[in-house]
């Protein structure tokens, strides 16, 4: 174990630097939120900062910078399925676009879109 002591010392210095960057990024993201950015812009900046922070934690603290192949494979797999899971809202949205054209005149609460579209569809045919 002690054979790697010097390696570990180098690691420790990295951890401190990464901590400083993470703290700075936290301040940045809060500061940016006080600027009057448009919503898409604000989302883009906030997610960019969050992804950077997340990447730093994963790469340095969780040692993903230098990890075994099987862990990369496993993570790739869960990222793919994570993306599929995130596609759920997209899929819903696609239904929304179509149903809007059918019943846009009613303009009920958006939360009820799915349901109302369904009912309307049944009644309309």
């Amino acid at each position: 174990m002690s054979a790697h002591a010097e390696d570990i010392q180098a690691h420790v210095r990295t951890y401190v630097v990464v901590f400083a960057v993470l703290a700075a990024l936290t301040v940045v993201t809060v500061a940016v939120s006080y600027l009057d950015l448009s919503t898409p812009m604000a989302i883009a900046v906030a997610l960019l900062v969050a992804c950077t922070k997340g990447a730093l934690v994963a790469l340095f603290f969780m040692h993903l910078l230098d990890e075994k192949k099987i862990i990369y494979a496993l993570l790739a797999l869960s990222v793919i399925f994570f993306a599929m899971c995130l596609s759920i809202p997209t899929e819903w949205h696609s239904g929304l676009i179509r149903s809007d054209s059918v019943w846009s005149s009613t303009g009920a609460g958006a939360g009820a879109h799915g349901e109302s579209a369904h009912d309307d569809h049944g009644g309309g045919h």
Binding site: S94, G95, R98, G114, H118, H121
Partner: peptide
């Protein structure tokens, strides 16, 4: 039957 779009 939930009224999803044709693309989906």
């Amino acid at each position: 039957m939930t009224g999803m779009g044709t693309t989906m």
